[in-house]
């Protein structure tokens, strides 16, 4: 087991190195001259050259990469071109916000979708199952910004339950931010809901057919014990994996939702960085997102193995 983890971690480091290389090369080749972006269209050629030298943009690419990587690893993520602020502070602040949003989303989405999926699975092909399946499919059909706007319209503008704008100030804690987190979290939940519900339903239907369910029932166990102790343990394996993986998406992939709600997460920072061609910022965000994705995948695999005794990790 520990050998497996070590190998996976080594693999993860290689992945990250490769991504960093790609990220670096691609961002260097983005059309547009950074110095000109920073100094504006009217800047003089000597001023541009000076800035390029200052930013190290005149060195050969491999050197630029190595020194950038070295600085990145030692915690110096550079200075944002467009704001002049340290990239690290900017990114970590936003990453914290994203984690809060992801956390709340999972808090809502996991119990809800698992509950709906289990109910649908136990009542497979009954009216309740059809209602849940059709309902969750209808929701998944809508793009995120539509669900987001509907939620704003109903819950914020009409019912005044939550604020429509989620632009929290830097340094806001989880509980303080909670009211403003609810709507974006609900929107993200809707994206996950249909998928996770259907996956859970399929798992439950499949497992309910297994012989061990008959054995358990014929032991005279009450139905909730049969389901709770025997069925879910097996039926939820794929669900758990998918949820763990979706954590990566929730951290780095909520660009649309964050924009709709004006939420200061990593996604919006990324949009901002792309708009401004802010290379150091883009590089840091991408690498961080890839890291989170990779860790989420590893976590999912380990969790799956830990819960499933038939898998032996070697």
């Amino acid at each position: 087991m520990s050998r497996y983890v070590a190998r996976r971690l080594a693999f993860l480091v290689i992945t990250l190195l490769l991504t960093s290389l790609i990220v670096f090369v691609v961002t260097q080749w983005l059309p547009g001259d950074v110095a000109r972006v920073i100094l504006g269209r009217e800047a003089s050629e000597p001023a541009l050259a000076a800035l390029r030298a200052e930013l190290g943009l005149d060195k050969p690419l491999p050197l630029q990469y190595l020194s950038w990587l070295g600085r990145f690893l030692t915690g110096d993520w550079g200075t944002s071109y467009s704001t002049g602020l340290p990239v690290r502070d900017l990114v970590l602040e936003r990453a914290g916000n994203s984690t809060m949003l992801a956390g709340l989303t999972l808090l809502i989405a996991v119990p809800l979708s698992v509950f709906l999926g289990v109910v649908a699975g136990l009542k497979a092909d009954k009216p309740l199952d059809a209602t849940i399946s059709i309902g969750s499919l209808a929701v998944v059909g809508l793009p995120e910004f539509v669900t987001g706007l509907i939620l704003i319209e109903v819950l914020a503008l009409r019912l005044h339950l939550f604020p429509a704008n989620s632009s929290i100030r830097p340094g806001t804690g989880f509980f303080e931010a909670l009211p403003q987190l609810v709507l974006p979290a609900l929107t993200a939940t809707f994206v996950l809901l249909a998928y996770v519900t259907r996956l859970t339903r399929a798992g439950v239907v499949e497992e309910m057919r297994q012989g061990y369910v008959r054995t358990a029932t014929l032991k005279g166990l009450p139905r909730r014990t049969v389901v709770g102790r025997h069925v879910l343990r097996n039926a939820l394996l794929p669900t758990i994996t998918v949820l763990a993986i979706s954590f990566g998406w929730l951290i780095g992939g909520l660009i649309v939702i964050e924009n709709v709600f004006n939420y200061p997460g990593l996604g919006r920072l990324m949009t901002f960085a792309i708009d401004r061609r802010d290379l150091p910022l883009m590089q840091a965000i991408t690498l961080l997102t890839v890291l989170v994705f990779a860790l989420a995948n590893l976590g999912a695999d380990l969790l799956y193995a830990a819960l499933n005794p038939r898998i032996r990790l070697e």
Binding site: G211, T215, A216, L218, R310
Partner: peptide
């Protein structure tokens, strides 16, 4: 009172317990 010994012992035991 009634017990069943089934045909497929492998499938009749819960794989994760």
């Amino acid at each position: 009172q009634i017990k069943l010994v089934p045909q497929d012992p492998g499938a009749s035991l819960n794989p994760s317990l």
